[in-house]
Design a protein around this nucleic acid. Structure first.
Length: 258
DNA sequence: GCCCAGGAGCATA
DNA sequence: TATGCTCATGGG
């Protein structure tokens, strides 16, 4: 028999209630930012598009998301934004579009120099070429790849693969990142997470946390889209690795839980 | 100057 | 399986 006060706490912090609360606090995030659409109505100058969830991406736009997903690995978006702008500028000057062919036509040093500002530029140049080769070798038309296929590409791990599936291909897949793990670990440490809690609480691994999200959230693309973006936004404000602001965290103290 | 960011691969135990 | 090291720029 679980005490009533515990039931209410457990229900409060399942993934769906975390989602609803974060959405109320921060609003729609408009991910994934598409710089190539930054001049279109509904898109801001960085390419964010809050409230627009249409599945109408062109191949060069899908490839911008794939590129961004690699460039942002362990890197802040401001650095990625700079590299993406540089890439698109080179495209424009060469009269090309962002594509596997564009990356493969450059030699390593040229590509690495263009994406320098996003850090790890040698590794990321190699990764961009690897993912480009994958598309040209296996599916030149950018049809939906399987998660297994994506994971077989050098430089693409679980989070990058799921980001690509969710944001470039509108697949209903939850993305887990360092913020997700940290936020739910800290909620759980305060008895506020609805995770199955073993006697000795196990760490939230990628797969375990993704299963939790999939089981607790409505299986809708737009929910998964916003949830990951909202966790990132919340993490930036309240849950960085060293500076946790649990004492003023809206997930714990914002009133009006649904 | 230090810390960290929208990770992943690899060596080692 | 799991832990530690490496990759690197730019903003706070």
């Amino acid at each position: 028999m679980v005490p009533l006060f515990l039931i209410s706490k457990l229900q409060i912090m399942n993934s769906h209630n975390v989602y609803k609360k974060l959405l109320r606090v921060y609003g729609p995030q408009g991910w994934w930012p598409l710089l190539q659409r930054s001049s279109l109505p509904g898109y801001d100058q960085e390419g964010y598009h809050p409230g627009i969830y249409k599945n109408d991406l062109q191949p060069h736009e899908q490839f911008e998301i794939i590129t961004g997903a690699i460039l942002t690995q362990n890197t802040s978006w401001t650095n990625v934004r700079s590299s993406m702008g540089a890439l698109l500028e080179v495209c424009r000057k060469k009269g090309q579009i962002l594509s596997p062919e564009f990356f493969l036509a450059m030699d390593h040093s040229e590509l690495a120099a263009i994406i320098r500002s996003s850090g790890y530029f040698n590794q990321k140049a190699k990764k961009l070429k690897a993912v480009s080769s994958f598309y040209l070798d296996n599916r030149g038309d950018l049809t939906i790849p399987s998660r297994k296929d994506l994971l077989s590409i050098w430089g693409i791990g679980p989070e990058t693969a799921d980001s690509i599936l969710l944001y470039a291909y509108h697949r209903p897949v939850c993305v887990v990142d360092a913020y997700s793990v940290r936020i739910f670990r800290r909620l759980e440490s305060r008895g506020l997470s609805s995770g199955r809690q073993p006697a000795a609480p196990k760490e939230w691994t990628y797969d375990r946390l993704q299963q939790k999200f999939h089981s607790e959230l409505p299986p809708e693309h737009r929910v998964y889209n916003e949830f990951h973006a909202l966790l990132v936004e919340h993490g930036k404000h309240y849950c960085t690795s060293k500076k946790q602001k649990c004492n003023i965290c809206p997930l714990q103290f914002d009133s009006g839980v649904d």
